[in-house]
Amino acid sequence: MERIVEFILELDKLKGVTRKNRPLGLDRYENSAEHSWQLAMLATSLLAYAAEPIDIDRVVAMLLVHDIGEIDTGDTSVYIEEGLADRKAAELAAVNRIFGKLPPAQAERLLGLWLEFEQGETAEARFAHAADRAMPVLLNLANQGQSWRECGISHARVVERVGPPIQAGCPALWDYLVPRLEHARQQGWFGA
């Protein structure tokens, strides 16, 4: 019990990891804990649109653990590819430290889910990636491109980075987003 409580209290630090998107109607930026919760809800809601049969419980578990390494590393924009290998190595070290607080069997299970998400090879991981890439897009569309404008992210860059993983895991979601992204481009909601 002590190890589980220590782990759960360590996870509380995820609430302090600031991301680039603002929650709707709020002046502050969202945190990674909010992001993970919202992804789990998005994936659950989109289950009928998965590209292939999936175990939604596994997807939700992946989405709840996928950003835990950010407790030590902070959030990194999907649009920044420079230094990616170093950031991924740091995240792996972080999740090993954090999951190491748990009893070994639980640590192994959660690390396995984190690695499955990172590798992106299973149907569940592809669907989880689709949700992870889509949620910031949905927030930006609802916030008139807030983080795209603030961070100088172009329409082409968004389509290039988020299109393939969304289409691979949830093609219907990508079909939904394409005309909305074009509308956003026409409205000037992207950075230069």
Rank of each mutant, 00 (worst) to 15 (best):
P179S: 03
R185G: 06
D55S: 09
E118R: 11
G16D: 15
V5W: 06
R28D: 06
G169F: 01
E52W: 11
K101P: 00
R133I: 00
N143E: 15
A85C: 01
R185A: 09
A94W: 15
L14M: 15
L115K: 12
G25E: 10
A93D: 12
S32D: 07
A43M: 04
V159C: 11
K20Q: 15
D86Y: 13
Y29P: 09
E160Y: 04
R133C: 05
V162L: 09
E52T: 00
E10M: 13
L46P: 05
L139S: 05
A192Q: 13
G191W: 07
M62N: 10
R3M: 02
Q106K: 15
G169S: 04
G152E: 10
E116R: 03
G188R: 13
A130Y: 04
E34A: 11
E30V: 08
N140M: 10
R161Q: 11
A61P: 01
H66R: 09
V5D: 12
V95F: 10
L39I: 02
G152I: 11
R87M: 09
M62D: 09
A107R: 03
E10K: 12
E82I: 00
G25Q: 11
R58H: 10
I80W: 08
D67S: 08
L139R: 14
L47F: 07
P179K: 05
V95Y: 06
A90C: 02
A192R: 09
Q187F: 11
P136F: 04
V65R: 00
E182G: 03
D12P: 01
R161K: 14
Y29H: 14
G69F: 14
A48W: 09
Q144F: 13
L26Y: 07
V65I: 02
G163F: 12
R58F: 12
E124H: 04
G191A: 03
G83D: 06
N21K: 11
M62Q: 14
A134S: 12
H183S: 10
Y49N: 06
E70Y: 12
L26H: 08
W189V: 07
W114A: 06
I98N: 03
A40V: 05
I54T: 14
E121R: 05
L177W: 10
W148M: 08
K20C: 15
W174V: 14
R126Q: 05
M1V: 07
S45K: 04
R157A: 15
P179C: 02
D75Q: 11
N31Y: 06
N140V: 07
D12L: 14
A85S: 08
A168V: 02
W114I: 06
K88L: 10
L177H: 05
E150M: 11
L177G: 01
R97G: 03
A43E: 00
P53C: 04
D72Q: 08
N140G: 15
I56V: 14
E160F: 06
V137H: 09
I166C: 08
A93G: 09
I166W: 00
R161S: 08
L102I: 02
W189D: 12
M1E: 02
D75V: 00
E124Q: 02
E116P: 06
K15D: 08
I80E: 11
F7I: 01
